[in-house]
Computed example of a mutant assay.
Amino acid sequence: MESPIVIAIDGTSASGKSTNARLVARALGYVYVDTGAMYRTLAWYCLKLGVDVKDPEAVARVCRRWKTELRCVDGQVRLLVDGYYPEREIRTAEVSAAVPYVAAVPAVRRWMKRKQRECIRFGNLVMEGRDIGTNVFPETEFKYYLDASLEERHRRRAAEGVQEDLAARDQRDSQRKVAPLMVPLGARVINTSGMTPEQTSALILEDIRQRLASRGAGESTSA
């Protein structure tokens, strides 16, 4: 029995990771995993408990003790806390501001890696984040890294009504001690500046299908 396929889509903030990962997952019929939502869920839970997100030890304690469950709903994996998925709550400005602190805690990243690897039980995955191809599923051959100019990324955030210092976020993510943001070894790098999501996802899908076809041809030859 073949192991499920994992499509890893990493990249900077506002580079188009989420939109393109959803499009690719839908086109292939794979399960979509938004790892950023998992970190947001922990940030929301810490805030809900009144925990100082700038205190790494306090955040790590919450991560060790909270009761969670992975569930696949309508082709998307969700991380539930005490049986509840805070779909709207994790998208607030307060949670967005807290996420970088929570995500930088080494114990949190180790916990998230284990939980994200568990998602493989749901089948073939399209998983997007910042360390999927480097840390969570480094063994996958399907790695894509999206980026865009800083101006383009600010424009996209502004269109969403969000004000964020993207350069500072990139610097924090690339300099953290555990699983920093970087281009995965062997990844195809795509600059999405001036491209529509449909154009970007088409490039990714074309590459995936070529790789899958080559894999099938190789197996036929070896057989």
Rank of each mutant, 00 (worst) to 15 (best):
A202C: 05
A104E: 11
A104S: 14
P197E: 00
D131S: 08
D52T: 09
Q175I: 10
D10C: 05
R157W: 05
P100V: 01
E57K: 15
P180I: 00
I132N: 04
E89L: 02
D55Q: 09
D131P: 09
A107C: 05
L205C: 08
R22G: 08
M1I: 12
R71H: 12
P138F: 01
Q116A: 03
A223L: 15
S96A: 14
Q210D: 15
D131I: 00
V178A: 11
R78D: 05
S13A: 14
S18V: 04
A179C: 10
G133N: 07
G29Q: 02
G133L: 00
L42Q: 08
P197M: 00
G29I: 00
R121S: 10
S174W: 06
S214H: 15
W44K: 09
G218C: 04
E57H: 13
Q171T: 12
A98D: 04
F142R: 13
D170A: 02
T140Y: 07
D147C: 12
D74Q: 13
Y30T: 10
E139F: 09
A104Y: 06
S222N: 15
K17I: 00
R64P: 11
M38N: 12
D52Q: 11
R211L: 03
D34Y: 08
K143N: 07
A167M: 08
R61C: 10
V73P: 11
M127Q: 11
K67T: 14
A187T: 04
I132K: 04
R22M: 06
M182E: 13
Q199I: 01
A93S: 15
V77P: 06
L146R: 10
F137M: 05
Y145F: 14
K143E: 02
G29P: 06
E141L: 11
Y39D: 04
E89M: 03
R40E: 03
K54G: 14
E87K: 14
L166G: 08
F142T: 03
A187I: 00
G218Y: 06
A202H: 11
V162C: 07
R26Q: 13
L47V: 04
R78W: 09
W66M: 14
